[in-house]
Amino acid sequence: MITAKLEEYAFGGLVAAIGVFTLVDATTIAARDDNVVGPRAFPYAVGVLLVVTGIVAIIATARGKLGEAEEGEDVDENVRTDWITVGKLVAVLIAHLVLIDLVGWPVAAALLFFGAAWTLGATWWRALPIAIVLALVVQVVFAYGLGLSLPAGIFEGVPFLDG
């Protein structure tokens, strides 16, 4: 529970910090000096809203009024947060966005699906073929069905895959 509280402070602090940034950065927006409301006024209002709500959230946390974590069909309220799984999923997403430009979308996408499914507990030999087929099907549907060509990467020049 102590970590949950610390996290709440941190998130409230983040909201307030974005508010401070908004207020500070808004002063640098170039604006003509006349009595009509310019491009700065609304950012100031948003900044104030963020600072105030961030601070009030921190005060509420200090008083023990913690936020209620969202419920869901697939969410088990009785287990502890599995940070390793979250970290792995973030890593898989980063790998995906790096790989698109290096080896093309089909490979990057297959890896994203396989990596995520495997992380979440799927059997690897079942997840791998599904990932490959799914990525190739999407690639073909995009190229021929929608006329949007995803970068083929290593499949460049291959019929059907390179739109």
Binding site: D82, L89, V90, T119, L120, G121
Partner: peptide, 13 residues
């Protein structure tokens, strides 16, 4: 993405 990460953190097995 927010939902997937959140569910993954406390997935009902």
């Amino acid at each position: 993405v927010g939902e997937a990460l959140y569910v993954a953190s406390r997935l009902r097995h």
